[in-house]
Design a protein around this nucleic acid. Structure first.
Lengths: 154, 154
DNA sequence: AAGTCTATGTATAACAT
DNA sequence: TATGTTATACATAGACT
């Protein structure tokens, strides 16, 4: 935006890159703040950097978190519904062995989550934990969407 | 940003306000896009307007959603851990009555979620459902944070 | 390595059509 | 209502410190 136009900071050393990122992020947040005041809206921004655990967030990380947490509650609700149904079935059978299997299945399910690198990274990211290193993303499930610009339907 | 500094759209009619919002949002997204390209980061932006159900999102709504979904999985994991422990206890007691209570507790827990207005709104918001009207937020759990600008620890 | 400067590119409020 | 123009404020890459 001045003299030249930056296109790829890969050509710069990390210091310069961080400097550029920092300035631009500050500017972006400033714009967002202005937008939220002028137009009376709530804005949440989350920025992930490759190789970094903690995302840069602005204004209300808990806003997005809260909303999406509740969304996931819905998903989990559906999953728990199935579990309960299953338990009910087992109860009628009065079969301890199957109940044990059910238990193991649950544990296994949890272990799968625990061993998911993305899951681990996510916990570290959102749980405000430091000192955890991971590859972070890799395109998985990210960058989907059409034009990446969806407005509401009202 | 021109002639005057900030303005307050409360004094404008809805058309003008929408126009201003639209222009600024477009601009914000443009900046975000530039940032993401130049600095090789992933950016997610979510904008909530008062009275509107569907948020305006940019670039990777699924990014934030996916991350936070996984985060919630962690919460649910912890909760399920307790359930399993509880079940194990009941199993040893071989007490059907208590088992029934446990089940009812679970169902009750789910119903609480279902009846939560915020939960309902959130589903509508994120489930891409239209035609649902609600008060949307109300400050609950929103707008927390210190200076609203947290960077990571690496 | 963090702050300042400056030339130039952008964004946009107010008009104009 | 949408699009274009203009004047001014803002953003920022690079240089300098």
């Amino acid at each position: 935006m001045a003299t030249k136009r930056l296109r790829d900071t890969a050509n710069y050393n990390e210091n310069v890159r961080n400097s550029i990122l920092d300035k631009r992020v500050t500017s972006l947040f400033k714009k967002a703040e202005e937008l939220s005041i002028v137009c009376d809206v709530e804005v949440a921004i989350i920025i992930f950097r490759p190789g970094k655990i903690q995302p840069i967030t602005w204004k209300s990380p808990s806003l997005a978190q809260d909303v999406l947490t509740r969304y996931l509650s819905f998903i989990e609700f559906k999953r728990l519904s199935k579990l309960v149904t299953h338990e009910d079935y087992l109860q009628k059978k009065v079969d301890k062995k199957e109940e044990q299997i059910s238990k193991l299945e649950k544990m296994n399910e949890m272990e799968e989550s625990i061993n998911d690198p993305w899951f681990i990274q996510t916990i570290a990211t959102l749980g405000d934990v430091s000192g955890v290193e991971s590859a972070q993303k890799e395109g998985k499930g990210v960058n989907v969407e059409d034009d990446g610009h969806s407005k509401d339907l009202d």
